[in-house]
Every structure is written in structure tokens, then in C-alpha cells.
Design a protein around this nucleic acid. Sequence first.
DNA 1: ATGCCTTGTTCTACAAGA
Length: 276
Amino acid sequence: MTKAHSAAFRLATWNINSVRLRIEQVTRFLDEHQPDVLCLQETKCREEEFPAKAIRAAGYEHMAIHGQKAYHGSAIVSRLPLSDIDRVDFCAMGDARHVAATVALPKALSNADAVRVHSLYVPAGGDEPDVVTNPKFDHKLRFVAEMGDKLQADASLPTLIAGDLNIAPYEEDVWSHKQLLKVVSHTPVETELFEATREALGYTDTMRRHVAMEEKLYTWWSYRAKDWAASNRGRRLDHVWTCQKWSERSTGISVYTDARSWTKASDHAPVIVDYA
DNA sequence: ATGCCTTGTTCTACAAGA
């Protein structure tokens, strides 16, 4: 089943939670939604273990992969040519949490012939929202700050930042603002840093550009709920940020929650953004 | 607040997720 779409450029991002285990879900998603570019996080394999053959067979010949054994891992798969592949080791932990590439756009697109895409996986941050007692939380905050600094320096091309940023910034980005204020992903220190970082870059929260602040919007639902859809205790942890040059160009977003219902699903649903 | 579940590996126990 192949669905055509009218967007000039379609970007998607998905924390796949093991790309090898769910490669058939990836190719199904590519086939059904036809993004030009798909950013993946938590691929959980080395570059040489990445299921490139199946992705190529799905019509996505271009890949930028930053892998490591068992943990993390980020990738960009594309049907448009990629160049200038870069892998930043934020916080010098040796983690494969970032990969970037320049996407060559079809000539039909006006104003620009390339866009820079970053696929990011921000650390979850552990349980305790305290930088003194919890090194993982400290790492998370330093990661976001460093991300802001490093991406500032790479602003020559129109830029899209996509990925699992592991922070739900707004009240309606979580199922209960009050109950999650002290839960890592929605604490004020995180959400304030998140917003300050995005604003310093001058980027748009593209999902919220198209979905009113008053509306609940989630991309992740815990595996631990007996019935994720019925309890619907979600959080918006996955994001697409669009630079000023392109901020007005987005025409719509969707969270493909169907994928959360698939057998052996990832705990994250894909996010799709269309650009005119 | 925790973790009702899930991942990959050091594989039947563990660390990590968020």
C-alpha cells in the first residue's frame, strides 16, 4: 500500500526502540507515509548491523548512521541524496545520540536546494530530578545546553531538528501537568531550559505551530500501562524544530498513533511534518 | 511516586528506559 502526498518535503521522526527488531514496521511506515526523510532514534545497533538492505529495498537509498552496541543510536534514512554527514558526541560520553546530514532537495522547491537535518536522542535523565544526586539528570541538562551551543554554530543552511528530546515542555504535553511536575521529562528546570534553548536558536516548535496549546498532544505512551490507549497517560517527548527560514513553510503535522497499536510496537509513535 | 513492560547483552539476570 502506497499513499502519495502533496507536500513538497515530508519529514518524519520515530524513536524505534531497536531498528532490527522493528525493521518491518519501519518499512511499512515508509511505504504507507512516504516521508522524504525519516529520522530514527534508539536504533540500538552498530552501524554494520543496521538493516540497510531492507531500507534500500523500500526505496530509501541514502542513510546517515551513528550506531553503537546495544544502546542509543541515531540515523537518517532518505530517498533524497545526503551529504556532509556529521556525528556529534555531545558531552563526550561516546554515545551515538546524534547524526546530521544535508538533504539535497528536488529542484522544484523554491528558495533553497538543500536543508540540514539533525536526528537527536536526548538522554532520558534517570529518575531523580537532582543534578547533585543523579548524574544522569546532570548529563541530560548539559546535553541540552551543549546542543543549543553547537547547533548555533551550524546555522548556514535551513535546518530541521528532529528527534526524541525526552522533555515535554507544555502543560498539555503531558497527561497530568500537576502530577508530572516532579517527574523527569516535565520538571520546570528541564522545560525552562528546553524553551530557552529553542528560543535562543530562533526555532519554531513545529508541532505546536499546528496544534493549539489547549489540546493534548503526545508521542510516547509507557509500556507499563495495561492498555496504553485507554489510560492515555502520554507525553510529548518527540519534537521537530524548524529554523526561521523554514518556519512558515510547514503546512501540518501528525502523530501516527496507529503505529503505537501495532504488534510489538515501539513505545513512541512517529511524528510527521509536511513542508510546502 | 512507582513502575503494571520491553530492550540487548555480560543472556534466565541485569541495566536502562522515562
